[in-house]
Amino acid sequence: MKPLAALLLFASAALAGDCKRDCTGIEWTLPFKAALEKAKKEKRLLLIKPIAFGTEKNGGW
């Protein structure tokens, strides 16, 4: 695979919206731009969980 193609694939995988959602019933809004827009429109606070130890595409966090 050419390096450029590999880089583009990685960039795609890094979008939060691609990460498997959890199944707690919390209605997550991803990515952040969509969450911020929704909070402004609906006049709501954001509940944000930053994660520091790495996330996996299968939803691990």
Binding site: F10, A13, A14, L15, A16, D18, C19, G25, I26, E27, W28, T29, L30, P31, F32, K33, A35, L36, K38, A39, E42, R44, L45, L46, L47, I48, K49, P50, I51, A52, G54, T55, E56, K57, W61
Partner: peptide, 27 residues
């Protein structure tokens, strides 16, 4: 949370699967 908040999670590392540079800058 579902009634009164907009919920969001992200990885502080942009390279993580849930990385989100916009969120990192905001937070």
């Amino acid at each position: 949370a579902n009634r009164r908040f907009v919920t969001f999670y992200f990885d502080l590392s942009d390279a993580g699967a849930a990385g989100d540079p916009d969120a990192r800058k905001f937070v």
